[in-house]
């Protein structure tokens, strides 16, 4: 019996029980800025580099799909925004539904890095660390889109990866869902409007569920997957 086996057995199971029990350990999420009504809007709008904080109809709004977690709104302003601690950010796009119950305990995920900075991918990788251990939920990453139910896209879909992403989507058998993870995948992030990338996955593929965050913490992604599997009820998208 090797050292690893001994160590593993000694440590015991460390996985979170997330959907059954609330996960509240500190540091599992950076949180999102929280818009409160009594806030000096101009300062915030000017300090936000991606226009995540913007004004529509004189109302200050936070577009989470644009936020890149730069913390300027909490650091470089006189009145810092307070950040919420949650992670259940995933939201369905319009007309999108979760999988039927058949997929509830078996979901295979094909991850496509369509040109991300590495952060989102890292967080995705962490999904099967001992702590998050998504296998316990029946979620598995598969290398082959043929066996995948979910296309998990990270990154802003660069021109070079566009074809590959489309191919991967084509290669998946129905029923299939697309999950966009991270700001870049949602909207293009800092690359929005540039020549190098599309403005997010939705510009080329029908996205079903989005997980904002730059990067979104593993639990956020897990939440998105659970929602997709129909095991967690969440809000509908507004778009």
């Amino acid at each position: 019996m090797s050292y690893w086996v001994k160590k593993g057995l000694k440590t015991g199971v460390v996985s979170t029980r997330y959907p059954k029990q609330e996960e509240t350990a500190s540091g599992i999420t950076p949180g999102l800025p929280q818009i409160t009504d009594n806030i000096n809007s101009d300062d915030l709008i000017s300090v936000c580099p991606t226009r995540a904080i913007h004004k529509t109809d004189e109302k200050l709004l936070l577009e989470s799909s644009l936020c890149i977690h730069c913390y300027r709104c909490s650091r470089d302003t006189k009145e810092p925004l307070s950040w919420s601690e949650g992670f259940e950010w995933a939201s369905f796009e319009k007309n999108s539904t979760p999988f039927s119950s058949t997929f509830g305990h078996s979901l295979h995920i094909c991850v496509v890095d369509s040109g991300d900075c590495g952060a989102c991918l890292n967080e995705t990788k962490l999904l099967n660390s001992p702590l998050y251990n998504m296998h316990r939920l029946g979620f598995f990453i598969t290398p082959s889109p043929r066996k995948a139910d979910v296309l998990l896209v990270v990154g802003a879909v660069t021109q070079q990866m566009k074809g590959a992403l489309l191919k991967a989507y084509e290669a998946m058998p129905t029923p299939k869902k697309v999950m966009a993870v991270g700001t870049c995948a949602l909207s293009g992030g800092v690359f929005e409007g540039g020549f190098i990338a599309e403005n997010g996955v939705s510009s080329i593929l029908p996205v079903d569920i989005t997980v904002p965050g730059c990067p979104p913490p593993p639990l956020a992604i897990l939440h998105g997957l659970l929602s997709l599997a129909g095991r967690k009820n969440i809000k509908r998208g507004t778009k």
């Binding site: 593993g8 078996s106 316990r136 939920l137 029946g138």
Partner: peptide, 21 residues
């Protein structure tokens, strides 16, 4: 997975997978 300090998938996971496939 337990040896790796993970909770691990359900022992019926293969059945779920087959059912889904």
């Amino acid at each position: 997975e337990i040896v790796q300090s993970k909770h691990g998938p359900s022992i019926f996971q293969p059945y779920y997978d087959l059912y889904k496939l």
